[in-house]
Amino acid sequence: MGTEGSRPDPGSRPALRLVSEEAAWALAERGVRASVVRLPQSVHGEEDKAGFIGRLIAIARAQGGSAYVDDGSQRWAAVHQLDAARLFRLAVESAPAGARLHAVGDEGVPVRDIAEAIGRRLDLPVTGLSRDEADGHFGFLGAVLARDNPASSTQTRRLLGWQPAQPGLIADIEKGHYFTGR
C-alpha cells in the first residue's frame, strides 16, 4: 500500500510526478515551505464526466458491457474533488516544509465494484476479462485496471486533521450524475 513515505517509482508514469516532487523537496531544503499533495487514480465528483470514471463509462457504453480484469480484486485509491480541494487549502495554510500528503478518501476500491456500479447504472452486463482481453476492451487502460494500487492517507489525516467528508467513489457513481448528458 502506498503511504506518504513511499517514493515514486522512477520508471512509472508520469515522470513529471517524480520531477515535481524532487523540485518541492529541494525548495524545502532551502527554507521554502513547499509540500507535495499526491492525488489517487480517481478524483471523482460531479465535474468529472470527462475524467477516469467518465472514460470507463464511455467504454462500457461502446463495448455493450462493463468489465474488470481477472477477478477484479485490484484496488484503486480515490478521493472526491471537494475533499481534495480542502486538502490543498490545508497544505497551503499549514503543511510543514517538505510534507508529502496523500489526498485519499477511499484507500482501495475493488475494480470489480467499480465495474458493477457502472453496469447497474447502465443496465449492462458485467464481466471479468483476461489480461489479454482487457487490452482489447479498454485499450491502454487495460494495463492500468490490472494493477493493484491502494494508498493510505493516515499520516496526512494525522498531520493536518484532514477528514474526507464527501461521498466515496461507489456512492458517487450511484448518485447518477456521471450518466446524465455526455
Results as ranks from 00 to 15, higher is better:
V126K: 05
G161R: 10
E93N: 04
L101A: 03
T127E: 13
A171S: 14
L82W: 10
F140D: 13
R17T: 15
A77K: 04
E133N: 09
A85Y: 07
F138T: 01
E21R: 12
I170A: 06
R121F: 00
E107K: 07
S66G: 11
G2Q: 12
I114L: 08
M1F: 13
A103Q: 10
E133L: 04
S94M: 10
G136V: 01
P150W: 03
W25A: 13
G119R: 08
D9M: 07
P150F: 07
R120G: 05
A62H: 05
L27D: 05
G45E: 09
S42P: 00
V43S: 03
Q166S: 13
R86L: 03
I118N: 05
G64L: 00
K175E: 15
T156K: 08
A24N: 11
D113Y: 01
I173M: 07
Q155N: 11
I59E: 01
P164N: 07
R89K: 14
P8F: 01
G128V: 03
L124S: 05
A171T: 08
Q155K: 14
L160W: 05
G65N: 11
A143W: 10
D106F: 02
F140R: 14
A99P: 00
I118A: 06
L145R: 11
Q163S: 12
L124W: 01
I170N: 03
T156S: 10
R131F: 10
R120L: 05
A58Q: 11
R147W: 08
E22V: 04
Q163K: 15
D106Q: 03
T154S: 14
A26K: 12
G5A: 14
Q74C: 02
V69P: 06
P10D: 02
G136R: 13
F140G: 09
V111D: 05
E116K: 08
